[in-house]
């Protein structure tokens, strides 16, 4: 799986309330509507800046807080192709894989706002085109890549009738 897009940078401990505020989270199950408010409390214009395929690039513990799947779903429906962070909160990480949103863990210090990135999920390589630098990350497990390729756990399960670890 290969992904391409620009980097939008955020800091450490971006919690699920910042990703999609509780003001909207409980009001609707329409993810396209929720997506318009993604990261709003950190950057009110964020949704408008996104071009299809862009990445969120962050520091440590991205997605900490609640277990609500609305958080990764809002990001996915905002047309973000993946999240690159130093580390992820585990429920968020799990939810992201389960809904088919790629998540990559590596040192993100050398990625700057607006950098053009190309990601190879199987190889575990991020190529920073703007800086002509390669960054390695621990490739996702085969099982997780299968889920991502199938578009999430629900579709994966429907296809095989088992988790197919």
């Amino acid at each position: 799986m290969k992904l391409k897009g620009r980097a939008h940078k955020f800091g450490n401990d971006v919690n699920t309330d910042y990703i999609i505020s509780g003001r909207y989270k409980f009001k609707t199950l329409d993810m396209r509507e929720l997506a318009k408010h993604v990261m709003e409390d950190l950057d009110p214009n964020f949704y408008k800046k996104i071009k299809k395929g862009d990445f969120i690039v962050a520091g440590r513990n991205f997605g900490c807080g609640s277990s609500r799947e609305q958080a990764p779903l809002a990001i996915k429906y905002a047309k973000i192709s993946g999240i690159i962070a130093k580390s992820f909160a585990r429920i968020f990480y799990r939810n992201a894989i389960n809904i088919g949103l790629p998540v990559m863990e590596c040192n993100t210090d050398r990625i700057k706002e607006g950098d053009e990135l190309e990601v190879d999920l199987e190889e575990g390589i991020i190529y920073n085109k703007s800086r002509k630098k390669k960054i390695k990350f621990k490739p996702l497990s085969r099982f997780m890549i299968e889920i991502l390729k199938d578009g999430g756990l629900a579709a994966h399960f429907k296809k095989y009738g088992t988790f197919k670890l």
């Binding site: 277990s67 799947e69 429920i91 389960n98 756990l153 629900a154």
Partner: peptide, 26 residues
């Protein structure tokens, strides 16, 4: 449990973890 504080039941000597809605559906 599809709630992050599901880890509470560990107090009983259980393995208990929060997950998301898709996990709950599975």
């Amino acid at each position: 449990g599809a709630d992050s504080h599901t880890c509470t039941y560990g107090a009983l000597g259980a393995f208990s973890a929060g997950v998301g809605s898709t996990d709950l559906a599975a």
